[in-house]
Design a protein around this nucleic acid. Structure first.
Lengths: 243, 243
DNA sequence: TAGATTGTTAATCGATTAACAATC
DNA sequence: TAGATTGTTAATCGATTAACAATC
């Protein structure tokens, strides 16, 4: 699918490319997941109300979000599931080829490498690196752990364009710098460290301890709150319990 | 107003326990991390400017956030690192005892169980459960994998008050229900599934695929954007690259 | 056409920023 | 006191919600 199929229909009339608020981007991924659920159930058409319910947002928010991408629904009818799925994928940039290199083959790195969730959603894990001689060469899933000393050449050969950092906080910044130097501009870090990246590089961070701390806050004060999802600006995600 | 000296207005604003916006809560965890960094460096006092820089936010935002907790700084001087650390921890509810049970001892569950980040921040992993007979009984770190069939009794015995779900999407909802039934009101899910929880239960979700999708969006459109952290409403976190 | 539901506008709500008076 | 920096207020900005006209 990397080929440039330029038939008129394929070219989305969207040089519009408005910058979407990050809260919207986060919700789009939720809608995507919900739509996949509908596809699995054989549902062909949904209303904003139905999709919003499945996504845990209000239908007003859903329509507002979708309308930022274009008019992909039909008044009085709803949205065609497959069609909307395509447009959402396109808007999120998922029609491209994303090749992910995982840096760090410790417990977490190995777990991530074997995690099935990537493949099914358009991401391919193309490399798994570590510096530990004890680990280098081991097979993990269908990958072999490569020597992180060769990071640059490995990234080049595998054409990795995303990196996942799964290493100790102490090693994270250095690894991050090398990954950036290798030309990667999208990084997901699981390292418990505050990382510095140059402009033009997008870094996202997932930290277990942070998540637990936020849970602690809610638990401490009578909680009451429903669920919240990951993501910037903390949009409520994948909700439920809205009632 | 009444003649009673006990009218609400008279009560000192000390135990006020205002509900903090989730964006603020998320940032507090960042400040906490930054403060720990200062402690490690032996710094005893910081200005809002310094702490804000280290946290990747503006000093105005920092002061606004901290002022919601109380007045813990000294005008003309700054904040005492240790003192502020204490207050932040208290505000986040980290002075309590948090006992975490990990449900699912697959690759991810085992990785999490061995992850050092918890202990150092006041969370104790007290149990690791799975349903697979092949895995039950195995040692992981200093824990032994217990049979998830006994989930209720294990949670009771270990007095677990937080749960981490590290299992396939297909098994997640059922496990989640049992965890809730066992009395846990704070759940962190790594399962790629939209989970339903009753009111009063706080659920947070971390999903690799979602994170990568968000990265894909930024990469697809000239990126430009700096870094963003986890959390609701997506506050920029742990930033850098601000220059 | 009548019924339904989108896309959009206007109103509300909340969060961030800037500026400064209070005060150490 | 003079200098510094907090805590807070007011202004700006952005996001959510509600309502409805457009239209299938």
């Amino acid at each position: 699918m990397t080929t440039h199929a330029k038939s008129p229909e394929d070219v989305p009339a969207e040089p519009t490319a408005k910058r979407l608020p990050s809260a919207v981007v986060a919700r789009l991924t939720v809608y995507l997941r919900a739509l996949n659920g509908f596809v699995a159930e054989g549902v062909e058409r949904v209303s904003s109300e139905e999709l919003a319910d499945a996504s845990g947002v209000s239908s007003a928010t859903l329509r507002k979000d979708l309308s930022q991408l274009g008019s992909y629904g039909t008044r009085g009818v709803g949205y065609e599931v497959e069609n909307l799925l395509q447009h959402l994928s396109a808007a999120l940039g998922l029609t491209r080829d994303w090749r992910v290199a995982i840096v760090g083959a410790g417990n977490l790195g190995r777990a991530l490498a074997r995690y099935g969730g990537f493949e099914t959603r358009g991401f391919e894990v193309v490399a798994l690196l570590d510096t530990d001689p004890q680990i280098i060469g081991n097979e993990v899933g269908w990958l072999r752990v490569a020597d992180a000393a060769n990071l640059e050449s490995i990234f080049k050969r595998t054409r990795a364009n995303m990196a996942v950092l799964a290493l100790p906080g102490s090693a994270a910044q250095q690894a991050c710098d090398r990954v950036v130097a290798a030309g990667v501009r999208s990084i997901l870090s699981f390292a418990p460290a505050i990382l510095q990246v140059p402009r033009g590089v997008t870094l996202r961070k997932v930290d277990m301890a942070t998540e637990l701390q936020i849970l602690a806050y809610h638990a401490q004060r009578g909680e009451a709150g429903g669920q919240t999802g990951e993501d910037e600006h903390g949009e409520p995600a994948a909700g439920t319990a809205s009632a």
